[in-house]
């Protein structure tokens, strides 16, 4: 790495940018790994708990056990909207049995959609940086290499020596930029694809949960 001391200012700047991209993308990878893992595992636990518990108020009181699951947000939003509808109709005593007007179902669906959207936004936060890293860092590295080779050839022209011993070090230094660009890009692209798949699975789980929640509410209303 010491021979980087001989590189030009532009190549050094390019290397700094690439290192920045690499550090931040790995930070996002670590962060997202934990976030997605927790979201998946706690969502599974929450669904088990949801289907075992028959009462919404009982579920609502235990939401703090599943803080990392996006489904708890959906449930909280749906339950809150349901509660408001019931309170509006002065039917507080009927809340425990989920009694509401049929027209209120639309309100609950909208609340669930809004919660789903906000959770998708939260889950996809920073992932775009990985895509940016994967697509741009090889080009940034390539730019550094081209610039380095240009400088090397200029130096060769000035010294007047065209031997391999003079040409090779400059080109070797310049190629480091491309290498670091690829080192930054490859994990970022792999992580981006992995997180995209995991987030897609979570979105499907949230959609399914929303549908199930609305079904339960509607069944209860029509039963009344």
């Amino acid at each position: 790495m010491l021979h980087l001391a001989g590189t030009g200012l532009v190549v050094k700047l390019v290397l700094c940018i690439l290192v920045f991209f690499s550090v931040v993308s790995w930070a996002i990878i670590f962060f997202k790994l934990l976030q997605v893992y927790r979201a998946n595992s706690e969502s599974e636990r929450f669904l088990d708990f949801f289907w075992k518990t028959k009462r919404f108020d009982g579920i609502n009181s235990q939401l703090d056990r599943f803080t990392n699951s996006p489904l708890t947000v959906l449930f909280s939003e749906g339950y809150g909207e349901l509660k408001r509808l019931v309170e509006k109709g002065d039917q507080k005593e009927e809340l425990d049995v989920m009694s509401t007007e049929l027209g209120g179902i639309e309100n609950i669906a909208r609340a669930l959609r809004r919660a789903t959207t906000s959770e998708i936004t939260r889950l996809e936060k920073y992932v775009t940086f990985l895509a940016t890293t994967g697509s741009t860092t090889p080009f940034i590295g390539l730019f550094g290499t081209v610039w380095g080779i240009m400088t090397a050839f200029k130096g060769i022209g000035e010294t007047g020596s065209a031997s391999l011993a003079v040409v090779a070090p400059g080109i070797s230094e310049a190629l480091i930029a491309t290498a670091i660009g690829l080192v930054a890009a490859i994990p970022a692209v792999m992580a981006y694809n992995h997180f995209q798949y995991k987030i897609k699975v979570l979105i499907a789980t949230m959609d399914n949960f929303s549908t199930e929640f609305l079904n339960i509410v509607q069944r209860t209303v029509t039963k009344k």
Binding site: W26, A27, F31, Q35, N68, S118, R122
Partner: peptide, 12 residues
């Protein structure tokens, strides 16, 4: 709106 708890990017 209830939000899921995230630890932030600092530790990452």
């Amino acid at each position: 709106t209830r939000q899921s708890r995230d630890t932030g990017l600092g530790w990452g």
